[in-house]
């Protein structure tokens, strides 16, 4: 049994699966990174992904165009981000609570909205057709390379985009004036406002970008990964992304590596549950990514704690 497991892990398709599974988590993790850089804890990512996944799919279905679907998902994500921003920055609802509210909308509100727009209940299975799903692409040259080609080629466009965004995000944060302002707002809002940088505006921009990225994650889920929208589809990825952000020290590249770790855990799950004799452990295997998240968070917290040493006995506000 164990040998089987080892065998199936050391195969190109396993690495392919990891990349595929990582992509939506990575989008959400980048969404967490950008908002956290501006000092905004976006715990509404889970709900954002649910809602954008639904709207992405619906837009794609209505227009029969996957591109409009993806853009629509991003647009809805931005709207949700701005809504959270309005309540938290303007009306001073605790940002955690705004996040929870968005998650509520994501849980039940989506079912209501799906019903309202289509009359369907629970999932969109009846509406799926190939032309509204995100296409996969073979990368020329690389797809000819044995093994590497199998791993890297043939992914959905959005999968590549997720990894490209890691580096774009890095450049954005560290090389552009807007990125500089966002980091300044997150690190010392008083400093930013003292030179006329609008803290609120930067936070709005960050959470809107966060929403757009969550939208990409959502679109990826409903228009590629699950091939249609269903209720239990996001399954905590928004929350896992928060953990990936924290473990990745809030940096895009760090978040990518922790996302890959979670991708690995989930890929293991699909692999292991397919093995003979393991079937009756399927639920425990499904638990793995969440346990990994807790363990990862604990290690991260321990490393922070070690750094704090003697100086921070004074409670940090």
């Amino acid at each position: 049994m164990f040998e089987q497991l080892i065998q199936s892990i050391f195969q190109a398709d396993f690495l392919f699966i990891i990349i595929r599974i990582t992509a939506p988590i990575l989008f959400a993790a980048l969404a967490a990174v950008i908002s956290e850089k501006a000092g905004v804890a976006n715990i509404g990512l889970e709900g954002m992904m649910m809602i954008t996944a639904l709207f992405g799919f619906l837009f794609a279905y209505w227009t029969q165009s996957w591109i409009i679907g993806v853009l629509g998902a991003m647009f809805v994500g931005i709207l949700l981000g701005l809504m959270m921003g309005f309540f938290s920055f303007k009306l001073k609802t605790d940002i955690i609570l705004s996040g929870i509210a968005v998650n509520m909308l994501g849980a039940g509100g989506t079912i209501f909205l799906l019903n309202m727009f289509t009359g369907l209940r629970g999932n969109t299975g009846a509406l799926v057709s190939p032309n509204i799903l995100i296409p996969t692409i073979d990368i020329p040259l690389i797809d000819k390379i044995p093994i590497l080609g199998e791993i890297l080629s043939g992914h959905a466009i959005l999968t590549y985009l997720a990894f490209i965004f890691v580096f774009l995000m890095r450049i954005f944060l560290y090389r552009t004036p807007l990125g500089l302002k966002i980091r300044a707002v997150g690190e010392n809002p008083n400093a930013a406002s003292s030179v006329g940088v609008s803290v609120i505006k930067m936070k709005y921009i960050a959470i809107a970008m966060s929403g757009a990225l969550a939208g990409l994650g959502g679109a990826f889920m409903s228009m590629y990964y699950s091939q249609g929208w269903n209720q239990g589809m996001v399954a905590g990825r928004g929350f896992i992304a928060l953990a990936a952000q924290a473990m990745g020290r809030g940096e895009p590249v760090g978040a990518m590596f922790s996302s890959l770790l979670f991708g690995l855990a989930q890929a293991m799950k699909t692999k292991v549950s397919g093995l003979r004799g393991m079937a009756s452990y399927n639920y425990l295997i499904e638990m793995i990514p969440y346990v990994v998240t807790i363990v990862g968070l604990v290690f991260y917290a321990m490393s922070i704690k070690r750094k704090a040493r003697k100086h921070q006995l004074r409670p940090i506000k």
Binding site: I171, R175, T176, P177, L180, K181, R183, A184, E187, N188, N190, A191, A192, S194, V195, G196, V197
Partner: peptide, 26 residues
């Protein structure tokens, strides 16, 4: 002080009015 500790002196000074090159980058 209203300064961002992780940024350099020059970055702090131009914060909010950073000179650009290529229309996009600092």
């Amino acid at each position: 002080f209203m300064l961002v500790p992780s940024l350099t002196v020059a970055e702090n000074i131009v914060l909010g009015m950073a000179p650009k090159k290529g229309g996009l980058f600092i």
